[in-house]
Design a protein around this nucleic acid. Structure first.
Lengths: 185, 185
DNA sequence: AGATACTATGCAACGAGTTGCAGTGCAAGT
DNA sequence: ACTTGCACTGCAACTCGTTGCATAGTATCT
């Protein structure tokens, strides 16, 4: 469990409404911790009950009302507590890898469009990261920005890794297509 | 949802009992799709009801009974169906990245032990992969092995990426420790 | 006037996944 | 004899997360 903490950090960076957070989770932080708006609203409600955040309704002029949340003192101390507490890496879930192994029991060629799709997605994301990098992280950086940049750099590194891997995997599958049928090289 | 498919692929590679699968998920496939034994038993039961797999109790000589599952025809066709169906990449969940951004609102130095811990874990995993690589994937490979190797290579690539990133991040945090207090560089 | 779409919030029902516990049977140490 | 440990299976209770739907105001297009 830790959407709580992702939201707290997000709110520390900038007090926001649920809707805003949901949008932010489609970019930025969401690249490292995804969540849907329903889940976000649920957790916000729970954290408000717990006193970690407080919400203030802002009557919208020419727009629906929005409830702006900010982190309370007890929310801040929860963040500190969590930062100090050791965390194990999350368990991986990568269906593409399972599919690769499954492909041995079906038509490996069927995975080619899938891999191309993934390659395109990762290429797009890499481009998006590069844009953010150029826009927000050139020049001198204060601590907060330096940390954010370090996080972004992990994104860049991994998307590059993905791209290279997709190329390699596509090469392998294409090589299967050529020597039809044979099961040994 | 797709522990189902991970289990099916695992069972295609080798018919197994729930316990065996759980153990296998601590190595091998589990590096790409983790699961606990309780969840595995639950899904196995559901898939047996659905007719995708069939279990046969084997009275253990000098060992507890075990229920050996293998994939039925309808299970195989489910795998084929799933392989052909496009899948989006799983949403990422990486608490370390959230912590990095959160560190701006606490003591960044507190993350150093955490990063060292992660670095050690990734180094260990990389070593384990290298061992598997040398043991199982040197020499000529048939299709199945080639696919498995391609999956392993993604593991190697990512662990290396992690290691490099951890080094970089540790460098950054240590640089904070030196220029105490200042918030701009 | 009506259709479409976006901002904004939320409920209800369900399914996936975790945590904790419980039990059997064998083997081996002490 | 007693405990510890491992192979093996599973239930029960819970939390986390997803899917689908509901609502309501504003803006824009046709």
């Amino acid at each position: 469990m830790s959407l709580d903490h992702a939201l707290l950090v997000s709110l520390l960076e900038k007090p926001s409404s649920g809707y805003e957070l949901a949008r932010r989770f489609d970019r930025s932080i969401g690249y490292f911790w995804h969540a849907t708006h329903q889940q976000i609203y649920k957790v916000l409600a729970r954290m408000e009950d717990a006193g970690w955040i407080s919400g203030e309704v802002q009557p919208g002029e020419a727009a629906p009302d929005r409830k702006l949340f900010s982190v309370s003192r007890s929310g801040r101390s929860e963040v500190s507590r969590w930062l100090a507490e050791p965390t194990e890496p999350e368990g991986v879930r990568d269906s593409l890898m399972v599919k690769m192994r499954g492909a041995a029991f079906g038509k490996p060629g069927a995975l080619i469009p899938e891999l191309e799709h993934h390659r395109a997605l990762h290429a797009n994301r890499l481009t998006a990261y590069r844009v953010i990098e150029a826009r927000d992280f050139s020049g001198a950086l204060d601590r907060q920005r330096a940390l954010q940049y370090q996080v972004l750099k992990s994104g860049i590194r991994f998307e590059q890794g993905w791209l290279e891997w997709c190329e390699e995997a596509l090469g392998l599958l294409h090589s299967f297509d050529q020597d039809q049928g044979g099961n040994t090289p």
